[in-house]
């Protein structure tokens, strides 16, 4: 057992505990902060897995996600007890999750062992070609950038489209509402006089 695997096990246990706290805690703002702990654990795991690109992106994205979520939940963090799921339904959910876990563990037996990936066993895998000829063909010393922007540029184009569409959707949803009997523009001085929310 390599030392990286032990580090990863410790980090995964930490992330699972943080995730369970994020799921089960009553206050929404504590839940959001626990989600941040999961993201930081992801970032450190990426560092151990030799993926510094992903670590940088993950930590920056996690900060932004936390700011968005806190903006949504600030001042309204009380979870009402009326809508809680009843005990039989909760037991049924746990049963379903455990069944999926059982099937997953059966399926994971067919996976290659951790640390011995498939691409090192198959000589004609595309990853080998990227590693061997990436610098010569694209001139990019960072093989990951070579993959996302040269070999697989279509993926990045699709990613840009999806990101544009989702953020456009968020803008449209959050746009100021117009009244039913015509459009009424409300100036913000009136808002401040009445005291906001």
């Amino acid at each position: 057992m390599f030392i990286t695997e032990i580090y990863l096990l410790v980090l995964l246990v930490f992330m699972i505990i943080a995730a369970i706290i994020a799921v089960e805690i009553k206050s929404l703002i504590s839940s959001v902060i626990s989600l941040g702990a999961v993201g930081v654990g992801m970032s450190i795991s990426f560092l151990f897995l030799a993926a510094p690109d992903l670590a940088i992106v993950q930590i920056a994205v996690e900060v932004l996600l936390l700011i968005f979520l806190i903006r949504a939940t600030l001042g309204r963090e009380i979870v009402s007890e009326k809508g809680a799921v009843t005990i039989p339904l909760r037991l049924l959910s746990i049963f379903i999750v455990l069944v999926i876990l059982g099937f997953g563990i059966i399926a994971f037996r067919n996976l290659p062992e951790f640390g011995k990936p498939v691409f090192s066993l198959v000589p004609e895998a595309p990853s080998n070609s990227y590693i061997q000829h990436g610098l010569k063909e694209t001139g990019s010393a960072n093989i990951i950038t070579a993959v996302i922007l040269d070999y697989r540029g279509y993926d990045t184009l699709g990613e840009a489209t999806v990101l544009f569409t989702s953020l456009l959707g968020a803008l449209v949803i959050l746009r100021a509402k117009t009244k039913k009997n015509g459009t009424k523009v409300i100036n913000h001085k009136e808002t401040k006089a009445r005291g906001g929310e």
Binding site: F68, S140, T145, T156
Partner: peptide, 24 residues
Amino acid sequence: SSGFIPLYNIGICLKVGAPLFVTF
């Protein structure tokens, strides 16, 4: 050293950064 790749990077940087700021 790699032709168009820095240019693609600048495009993606603007494409990712600007709408996130607008959404916030």
